[in-house]
Design a protein around this nucleic acid. Structure first.
Lengths: 199, 199, 199, 199
DNA sequence: TATGAATGAGTATTCATTCAT
DNA sequence: GATGAATGAATACTCATTCAT
């Protein structure tokens, strides 16, 4: 019989990723030491390096996974939606709000630690990021083209909507009075006002 | 390569503060070393410590000055304005946008390095920060009370407006096509839509 | 020039403790740098910190071990001795002299670097120190009570005997003309004269 | 009219020496910074260097003055005394005890910071130190020669007497129950017992 | 799969000292 | 007589990373 380790056999990789996620989010990339991460994961420093080649790699993996997931959520939400720009905008807001809330920690990392990615990693991930941005831009442009969105400056509208949704991660406390569905509705309303939607 | 300026005798304090501002904004608090700051300022490490007791103190001084200035700009803008909530909201947006643009670097520090303030400094500066927030809250509440703002969730509206204005610092490039006055108008419009203003 | 020993893997802890002992004794706590210690131990600075959390901890460990050993030597010496105060005083002198000579370096540290212990460490070790002092006090008091020691001021006698024994560490050179047994006898005689022993 | 400085005109030199004395005694040479000294003296760092060429010089001056004074006190005490070895020993004890008590601070520096003198200073002052030692040695030798001191090991006796007297500085509190005259008598008695004086 | 031991470069900060005025 | 401003070298300690097992 083998002894029972704190971290189950083979779970080392995930334990480390999880710990990195938490601590990067809490203290930032440069404010976090790999020792902190290993300790938090209940593993040795050497185990960390067995599973992950470097601190930078750890960050990049988290940012990539998060960015990827965000894009996929947005993409899926739009695919499930009909043709109407207002509905599609609400769908994008829903995907974003749900992502910010349910992946609060990693979305915060992706947002604030982007600059700490190595040049190489930043370049590699930039396409994914821009793809997500383009979903918004195209949608708003379509709404404007159809005359249902009347905002004069679509790019400012896009940035404002995204900023408003992103800010949720900074104050929202799950389990409080406001449900996720409430948020989705409220920020859908705000988004439609920002793009100056007229039914 | 930027040349290292020769700092005239007695000008050390400002040289260091300026350098700290730039590098903190660029790389973040923990990503910045005091050596970097001193080198950038064209002074020795010891000169830095002659003028500032610690790296943390340097950060706190920058954040404090910036937070203070923001509050004062908002306060002044409101004082010069009349009674009409819509006008007052535009005034607050103007103060915020002008601040984010003209003090882009330090406003970014105040926003993203807040968590790296020591507990003591954070507590000391928190009142100032909340005072600025209250200017927005009170104003929107007044507009709602008068029936000229119809947004159902004033706090979400407030957060959204502020987030939209703050985001400007991340993309705006002075000297480009968009003037500051353009920005003020655009984001004033957006703010009024967010609070659902009806003339 | 002394050659720097190559430290076999795993022997780092002792190498560092030994080096610290030597250099602290030679130059004092504040006169010693951790770099000096590491270099003397033939290890990197990082290896020092791998084994010891701080310079202060290193000092405290040395002082503690030495103080502990001194107390135990005294206690054991008394336990092996009979009832006669004069014999017991000689036993205590023997223990002290042997300790000062065989642990010359660390006993010097314990004596002169006591004030450089952190408050916490000083308080923790103070009991041990006082316990050793009490062995002397009790013994002399007993001799006085029995009328075999006639000194009028037992505390001054105690301090004088201890001071005389301690001073040995400052001048005695092992391997010279005077053997340890000589010292024990001479200082036993002196001690008995100080307490004014009458057979 | 000139303004009234904290430190009276021209008193800078002494203010610094006094401060150095206190802090060296309290924290040791390496535990003291010249900034501490200047601050304690109420003067600028530059003023310190105006009056004293270096930290080492400051230490050497204190040690020298103290060593000099000790020798002179001993020498004077002996000169005023008659021919009798016992009386002369008491005189030397008196001089030593009075010196340790009245110049407690500087005598502690001279004792414990000797090793921190530069080689040059140490060599220069060593003669003075040895001269004082020789007063004791000669006196005890004379007593032994005359047969009034019967100790078998005069050097050990000398060291013990001196150590006992020196230790007074570590525990004596002026203004307490024990007067200086008490001390002189008690330690004179102890000294005579150590050299095994027979009336 | 994992670890304990080690490293070199870097961290913030303080040191004794000097310079220009 | 004295100072404010500055420096280079040192301080204790931590960093991300690697090596031998």
């Amino acid at each position: 019989m083998t002894s029972l380790p704190t971290v189950p056999r083979g779970a080392g990789r995930d334990a480390i990723t999880d710990a990195a996620r938490e601590i990067f989010a809490e203290r930032g990339y440069h404010g976090t030491s790999v020792r902190d991460i290993a300790r938090h994961a209940g593993l040795s420093l050497s185990a960390l390096y067995y599973w992950h080649p470097s601190k930078q790699h750890l960050l990049a993996a988290l940012v990539e996974e998060s960015t990827q997931e965000y894009f996929e959520r947005c993409d899926a939400a739009l695919r499930e939606e009909g043709d109407e720009p207002a509905d599609r905008l609400r769908a994008l807001v829903r995907a974003t709000v749900e992502y910010r809330v349910s992946r609060r920690v990693e979305s915060a990392i992706a947002a604030s630690e982007w600059r700490n990615l190595s040049l190489e990693n930043r370049e590699r991930l930039d396409g994914l990021r821009q793809a997500a941005t383009r979903l918004w831009s195209d949608l708003i442009a379509e709404g404007v083209a159809r005359g249902v969105f009347r905002c004069a400056h679509p790019e400012d509208a896009r940035r404002s909507v995204i900023a408003a949704c992103n800010a949720i991660a900074q104050w929202y406390e799950p389990g409080g009075d406001i449900t996720l569905a409430d948020l989705v509705e409220r920020y859908g309303d705000i988004a439609l006002r920002i793009v100056d939607h007229r039914g």
